[in-house]
């Protein structure tokens, strides 16, 4: 079985986001990691490799700066990597790159996070599925395989659905699909020599353009009430905030 795992290279979740002149992310002092949802996808792929036997390829659309993140995915257990040498400027752009690679290979399963934690498009899995004519499911909380039959749990508002589809398919993953994996020493050593192929991007039309960024307005400072002033709080919610 061949599994492709698509990962993003994003600021660690504890990062305080800032921008340079409102035009681009201030990367100063920011630690970049595998996207938290992608991390779940990768962990599930490695689990499937361990239980059923599979070759796991990790793919990232990014410039050279993302290579440490890709190496980390190799250390966690992917067998080889592909880096498509371009800025991941928009979901349509990224989805076309992935579909292009998928068409040249024979993957049974393409896993990725339900969304990236930087641009939060939540689109790439569905787009890739559509481009390849494969089923796609997201957010996928459980994925079990029996031959080419996949049973999945999808989160919906207020509950979950149990779904079934035949491979090949695309899934956008989220917890608790697998336990996050931490690379061990042996993994880190072997990751250094695993193949990381750099390929050129294909050109794509229809991408949206990012003009500027801004931060949410700061909240004015918190108004405190004593435990026995709940009536005053309720009054403030009603008269001042006008939310009751």
């Amino acid at each position: 079985m061949n599994i492709l795992v698509c990962i993003t290279h994003v600021p660690d979740t504890t990062t305080k986001i800032k921008f340079v002149d409102g035009k681009e992310l201030d990367k100063n002092g920011v630690q970049f990691v595998i996207g938290p949802y992608d991390d779940y996808a990768l962990a599930r792929a490695v689990e499937l490799k361990e239980s059923l036997g599979a070759k796991v390829t990790v793919l990232n659309v990014g410039k050279q700066e993302t290579e440490p993140t890709i190496r980390k995915a190799l250390a966690i257990g992917a067998d080889e990597a592909i880096r498509i040498d371009a800025e991941p400027s928009d979901a349509i752009f990224v989805a076309h790159q992935i579909a292009h690679i998928a068409k040249q290979n024979s993957y049974d399963l393409i896993l990725m996070g339900r969304e990236s934690s930087d641009y939060n498009g939540g689109l790439v899995h569905g787009m890739v599925g559509e481009m390849l004519g494969w089923p796609s499911v997201s957010p996928c909380m459980k994925l079990d395989l029996e031959g080419t039959n996949a049973k999945m749990q999808k989160e919906i508002e207020g509950g979950k659905e149990l779904l079934e589809a035949t491979l090949p398919l695309v899934a956008g993953c989220q917890e608790p699909i697998a336990e996050w994996k931490i690379p061990n020493m042996r993994g880190i050593m072997s990751a250094r020599t695993k193949p990381l192929n750099v390929v050129e991007a294909i050109s794509v039309e229809g991408a949206i353009s990012y003009n500027s960024f801004d931060l949410p307005p700061e909240r004015s400072s918190c108004k405190f009430f004593e435990v026995d002033q709940v009536d005053d709080l309720v009054n403030a919610l009603k008269e001042e905030a006008k939310v009751l």
Binding site: I92, V124, H125, G206, I208
Partner: peptide
């Protein structure tokens, strides 16, 4: 947006050859 809408939107964008902005 909804869980259903989030699943429809990317498929629709590709089918309709449309550009898309979410959220």
């Amino acid at each position: 947006r909804s869980s259903l809408a989030d699943s429809i939107a990317p498929k629709l964008a590709i089918k309709a050859k449309a550009s898309i902005a979410t959220n």
